[in-house]
């Protein structure tokens, strides 16, 4: 399988890929700082790199919130419904 080997290759170079990604992300934020904001319909649209910050925070919040929700209230064993149906 040729495709499998390509994926294998990519995985073996994952630190390099990570560096490339980080550079790319830095470039995105830089671009956002350099270019003037197209709209300022919301106050945060004027802040450069807000979307990056927001994405990071939103992701972290979702991870922790859902985990909290699960452990606090919603998680049950997989056979929870079995014994009554």
């Amino acid at each position: 399988m040729k495709l499998a080997r390509i994926i294998e290759f990519l995985i073996s170079k994952r630190s390099l890929l990570a560096v490339i990604m980080l550079v790319l992300m830095a470039a995105l934020v830089l671009a956002d700082i350099i270019l003037p904001p197209a709209y300022t319909r919301f106050p945060w649209e004027a802040i450069s790199g807000f979307a990056a910050f927001f994405g990071f925070v939103a992701c972290a919040a979702l991870i922790f919130f859902s985990r909290f929700l699960g452990e606090w209230l919603l998680y049950r064993d997989e056979d929870y419904y079995d014994d009554h149906e």
């Binding site: 990604m21 992300m25 934020v29 671009a31 904001p37 979307a51 994405g55 992701c59 991870i63």
Partner: peptide, 19 residues
């Protein structure tokens, strides 16, 4: 447009970073 593109890419890639 550049604005939409930049916002979307930042949002997604930094979500990936957090993950």
């Amino acid at each position: 447009t550049m604005s939409v593109f930049l916002k979307e890419m930042q949002l997604l890639l930094f979500t990936g970073l957090a993950f």
